[in-house]
Design a protein around this nucleic acid. Structure first.
Ligand SMILES: [Mg+2]
Length: 241
DNA sequence: GCGACAG
DNA sequence: ATCTTGTCGC
């Protein structure tokens, strides 16, 4: 007897397959995102307090110059199920992005999302979801992988990578990246309107001193702090100024 | 059946 | 993700 949740997840899996058709994944030779010095990178993360999503967005130039980190409270999507994360975290990310742009913040040239792009069983992670709904170049950067990879091929030196592929397939859909020497890897994949190679370059460019890329750390700290103090309802809070 | 399982 | 204390190490 199948559980109602399984029936719902089956439908959501079909929806992911449909939405995945709208994703644009350029090969390196047909790159759609060519970074410019003055381009703006937006990095997003969320902390949850019950059914409220404290979303943080970190704006910086690709050259590393920080612009601002802001937090807003958004509505949570569905409950969390592994591999269906996009339906939980995608909607509040889009809400944040739309409100931010409406509030006069710069539209980013590229976005980093805390989760996967195409490194997903149906090639449709939360970064893919945001890519489809925003139509902006999106990169996924996660702390763990959903898809098996050959751990033993990853050497201990910083910048070592191992390709990630779906079972029985040859296409590379992401990389395990050793962001610091002798530290657990992170997982990078392209999501929309950007190649995998360019996605990896962007992440490597913003790593900084720790395992988690600097802008993702700033976003993480910002929404963590906001969720603990319960602030930032409608007003934009300027942090790290 | 067993293990693995983004945030 | 959240619930939670101390403790070890750079
Ligand atoms: Mg997160």
């Amino acid at each position: 007897m199948s559980n109602p949740i399984d029936i719902e997840l089956e439908k959501l899996a079909q929806l992911q397959e449909e939405l995945a058709k709208k994703v644009i994944l350029p090969a390196p030779e047909q790159e759609m995102y060519l970074p410019q010095q003055n381009d703006i990178l937006l990095t997003l993360d969320i902390q949850y307090v019950e059914e409220k999503a404290f979303v943080a967005g970190d704006w910086q130039y690709l050259n590393g110059q920080h612009i601002t980190t802001q937090v807003d409270i958004c509505k949570v999507g569905l409950a969390y199920f592994p591999a269906y994360f996009c339906f939980r975290e995608g909607p509040p990310l889009l809400e944040f992005l739309q409100k931010a742009i409406q509030a006069g913040l710069p539209t980013p040239n590229v976005i980093i999302v805390d989760g996967h792009g195409q490194a997903h069983p149906r090639k449709f992670g939360v970064a893919s979801w945001l890519g489809v709904y925003s139509d902006l170049p999106c990169v996924g950067c996660a702390k763990d992988t959903l898809v098996w990879y050959q751990k033993e091929l990853l050497s201990n030196e910083k910048n070592s990578i191992v390709p990630i592929k779906l079972p029985n397939e040859t296409e590379i859909i992401g990389y395990a990246l050793r962001s610091q020497t002798n530290v657990k890897p992170i997982f990078v994949s392209n999501a929309h309107k950007i190649s995998l190679a360019q996605s990896l370059t962007i992440i490597q460019n913003v790593i900084g001193q720790y395992r988690i890329p600097l802008p993702l750390r700033r976003a993480d700290f910002a929404c963590r702090r906001a969720s603990q103090t319960g602030k930032s309802d409608k007003e934009w809070k300027f942090l790290f100024d």
